[in-house]
Amino acid sequence: MSQHDCDCATVQQVATGDRAILPKGAKTIPIYVMGKRYEVPETLTIMKAMEYAGFKFLRGAGCRGGICGACPTVYRKEGDYKLHFGLACQTVVEPNMYLAQIPFYPANRASYDIEAIEPVAESVHALYPELFRCVACNNCTKACPMGVQVLDYISAIKQGDIARAAHLSFDCIQCGLCASRCMGELPQYHIAQLVRRIYGKYIQPKAEHLRKRVQEIESGKYDAMLENLQKMDKAQLEKLYKEREREPDMAPLGTWMPKDTQYL
């Protein structure tokens, strides 16, 4: 069916894009978005529920898969003083939750030349001296939707342990909720990113097999093969693909070897 054949007015409406359509018989619950009450299906995530309610995300939505950090939400529950945090695309709505999106929170990122930086904690201290305003209130860790021990990695940086901080902050998705709650006004996630960059570039052991492979590529080992592939027509490529050697699905680890090993 080409586009011209489509008569949109007569097509039965289903869920399109991110706009959720209420399934038959689904129960709705009340939620409060920035103080206004909406009835939304109880099974939806906050993001879908807001779209159901008519909100359109121009910013503050990204991967919708819980990894880009664009859609942090802060909410409270009825009769509970505590603040709760989550990603709108991952957190399922609850009855009577009060929520607001924090799509962006101001946090300064220091500029540095990663090629020239001295890979020691003091370099991080110099770029982010506000580190030393941390009061260990732990609001950062409480706010993290990824369960990162933010206070612990900040402590590790202050203690000069870059490797530990890099490991502790590995799951950070840069949503900024830590910075939004920080009493010392630290941009934790930017500091952690710098630490991971220093760790990756200077401290983490280099992958020897990767270095060798890059060397092989650069020495032209695969050039002839690639040129040959580029010259093939579609039929030849299809044939080559169909006849390729393939590891059996259930082959025990490390037991299978292809017959042609010239490019290994």
Binding site: F132, C134, V135, A136, C137, N138, L151, D152, I154, S155, K158, Q159, M183
Partner: peptide, 25 residues
């Protein structure tokens, strides 16, 4: 095995308890 900065100086104001949190932790 797990620790944070102690805060280095003691907070001296009667109503300022947040600065005691680091050493207490």
């Amino acid at each position: 095995s797990r620790w944070n900065c102690c805060g280095a100086v003691h907070s001296l104001a009667d109503d300022d308890l947040i600065h005691h949190v680091a050493p207490v932790r």
